[in-house]
């Protein structure tokens, strides 16, 4: 489903609306605009290995042709938010998994998206760092960004006490405020 939101794949039927874009009517040229309006965090971080932490976050702003002044203001702010100001000059392979995911989060947030999508953000992390990431996501949510997390980690879902949408083979089977993890098969999980 996250692939549909990013227009990596097209739906076999029906329509997808994201941030006011109607995806089925979108041309290839407009896809970058859609993706810029979203912040995305992936399970495997997807940082650019040849760039430092700072440059990775900066890159998300460079592609939008933001003003250098704006970049110099926003990037340190985003890094401070995830608590990585001190590691700005490090390269991704010098960081732990949790730190890398925080860089990815900073990159996703630097353009102030209205919607933040996290695809198994804790999938590659140990429970403690997972929890740190989730706290950050909660913080982001608190500041007014919609956050969608796809996960099948029971402990996280239970601890967050947020709205839970359970999907089984492409069908929404449950939509519940302050939900818990239940066994009718996990959260967003369709494309396997």
């Amino acid at each position: 489903m996250l692939k549909l939101i990013l227009k990596e794949e097209d739906p076999t039927e029906g329509e997808v609306f994201v941030n006011g874009y109607e995806l089925s009517k979108m041309s290839r040229k407009e896809i970058p605009l859609l993706r810029r309006s979203l912040g995305v965090v992936f399970q495997d971080f997807r940082l650019l290995p040849n760039k430092t932490v700072y440059e990775n976050v900066e890159f998300a702003m460079q592609i939008t042709e933001a003003l250098p002044k704006e970049i110099r203001r926003q990037v340190p702010m985003a890094l401070a938010l995830v608590g990585l100001s001190k590691k700005a000059k490090a390269y991704p392979n010098q960081l732990s998994g949790g730190e890398q995911q925080r860089v990815a989060l900073a990159r996703a947030l630097v353009n102030n998206p209205a919607l933040l999508i996290a695809d198994e953000p804790t999938g590659n992390l140990d429970p403690e760092t997972s929890w740190e990431i989730m706290k950050l996501l909660a913080e982001v949510n608190y500041r007014g960004t919609t956050v969608i997390v796809a996960t099948h980690e029971k402990s996280i879902v239970d601890a967050m006490k947020k709205r839970v949408i359970a999907i089984d083979r492409g069908v929404i089977v449950r939509d519940q405020e302050k939900g818990q993890y239940e066994d009718e098969v996990k959260n967003h999980q369709i494309h396997y």
């Binding site: 040229k29 970058p32 859609l34 993706r35 309006s37 995305v40 997807r46 592609i63």
Partner: peptide
């Protein structure tokens, strides 16, 4: 992979 990541963040083809 790098190109792939750039595309995911929303870089245009020409960029």
């Amino acid at each position: 992979r790098e190109i792939n990541i750039m595309k995911y963040i929303g870089a245009t083809d020409w960029f």
